[in-house]
C-alpha cells in the first residue's frame, strides 16, 4: 500500500519520462535563460555596448541610473556601467567556467584512479582530499592568490586547487558504487581490459554527476571569483570585472550607491542562473535526488 503512496513515479522509463519533462522543468528553463543571456552579452560585447568600457570621462562621474545615454549610470571615473557590465560578463564567465573544467578534469581523474584502483592509492588521494577539506575554500584560495600575487592566473590556480577535492570525492564515490555493480564484476570476469571497463562501464555513470556538480560549482565559482576580486586578488584594473567594480564602488556608497550595487546584481543574476541550471539538470538526470538533496 505504502509503495503506491510514496512512489507514483516508479515503473516509468526514467530517462524517457525525464526528457518529456523538459518542458515542465522550470529550473532548467529559467537557468538556461539567465545563463544564455550572459553568454550572449559576452559574445556580442563588441557590438552591443553603447560606450567604450574603459573610456573615463571625469565630467560625467557618478551619473545615476536612467541618465540619458547611460542607462545604468556611470562610475567613479565616469565610465559607462552598462558597457563595463557587458564586458565584465566575459571575465565572469571565464573565471567561473574555466576553473570548473580544469578542476573537474584533474579531480575526476584523481577520483577515478582512487576509486577504481583502491588500495594505498585510494588512501593516499583521500588523505590529500581530507587535508584540503580542512581548509574552508575561500581561505585557501585567498592564501594561494596572495602568495603568487594578484591576477587572473593566480586566481584561476587558486580556484582550481580549492575545488579539486570536491569533484574528486564525488567522482570517487560514483566509481566505488559502480565498481560493485554486477555488470562491472561480469566485465572483469570476462577478462575485459581496465581501459575498456573504465571507458564503457564506469565513465558513462560519471557523466551525470559531473554535469550536475560541475554546473552547481560554476555557480559557486561566480561568487568565489567575485569574492577574490573584491579582496583585491583578482583581475587588476582597468579590465572590467564585476567583483572589482563592486569593491570600487564601496567608497561612494553614500552619494552613488548604484556603482556598487549594480555589479552585485549581475553577480547574483549569473549565480542564480547556474544554480537553477544545475538543479534543473539534476532533476532531469537524477529525479530521485530531487527531494533529499535539493
Amino acid at each position: 500500500m505504502s509503495q503506491f503512496a510514496t512512489s507514483p513515479e516508479t515503473g516509468r522509463g526514467v530517462f524517457v519520462s525525464n526528457l518529456r519533462n523538459i518542458g515542465t522543468n522550470t529550473s532548467l528553463l529559467i537557468g538556461l535563460g539567465l545563463v544564455s543571456l550572459v553568454v550572449i552579452s559576452a559574445v556580442l560585447a563588441d557590438f552591443i555596448t553603447p560606450h567604450d568600457p574603459n573610456f573615463a570621462n571625469p565630467i560625467i562621474r557618478y551619473l545615476p541610473p536612467l541618465s540619458e545615454g547611460y542607462i545604468l549610470g556611470t562610475d567613479e571615473l565616469g565610465r559607462d556601467i552598462l558597457s563595463r557590465l557587458i564586458y565584465g560578463a566575459r571575465i565572469a564567465l571565464f573565471v567561473a567556467i574555466i576553473p570548473t573544467v580544469i578542476s573537474l578534469l584533474i579531480g575526476g581523474i584523481l577520483g577515478l584512479i582512487a576509486g577504481y584502483v583502491g588500495s594505498f592509492i585510494d588512501t593516499f588521494v583521500m588523505r590529500y582530499f581530507d587535508i584540503m577539506f580542512a581548509f574552508p575554500g575561500i581561505l585557501l584560495a585567498l592564501g594561494i592568490s596572495a602568495a603568487i600575487g594578484p591576477g587572473l592566473n593566480s586566481m584561476i590556480i587558486a580556484m582550481v586547487v580549492v575545488t579539486i577535492p570536491e569533484f574528486g570525492r564525488i567522482i570517487r564515490g560514483v566509481v566505488l558504487g559502480v565498481r560493485e555493480e554486477l555488470y562491472v564484476e561480469a566485465a572483469r570476469v570476462l577478462g575485459y581490459s581496465h581501459a575498456r571497463i573504465i571507458l564503457f562501464h564506469i565513465l558513462p555513470n560519471v557523466v551525470a554527476p559531473a554535469l550536475i556538480y560541475g554546473t552547481l560549482q560554476t555557480g559557486r565559482n561566480v561568487i568565489l571569483a567575485a569574492s577574490l576580486s573584491f579582496l583585491g586578488l583578482g583581475i587588476q584594473p582597468p579590465t572590467p570585472d564585476w567583483g572589482q567594480m563592486l569593491s570600487g564602488g564601496r567608497t561612494s556608497m553614500v552619494m552613488a550607491p548604484h556603482v556598487a550595487t549594480i555589479p552585485g546584481l549581475a553577480i547574483v543574476f549569473l549565480a542564480v542562473g547556474f544554480n537553477l541550471l544545475g538543479d534543473g539538470i539534476r532533476d532531469l538526470l537524477d529525479p530521485r535526488s530531487r527531494q533529499s538533496a535539493k
Binding site: A226, R250, A260, T261, N275, L276
Partner: peptide, 14 residues
Amino acid sequence: LFLNSMPSFWLGLV
C-alpha cells in the same frame, strides 16, 4: 536560492 547565489559582501553593502 537567492541567499546561496549572493556574495555576502554585496548583501552587506545592501
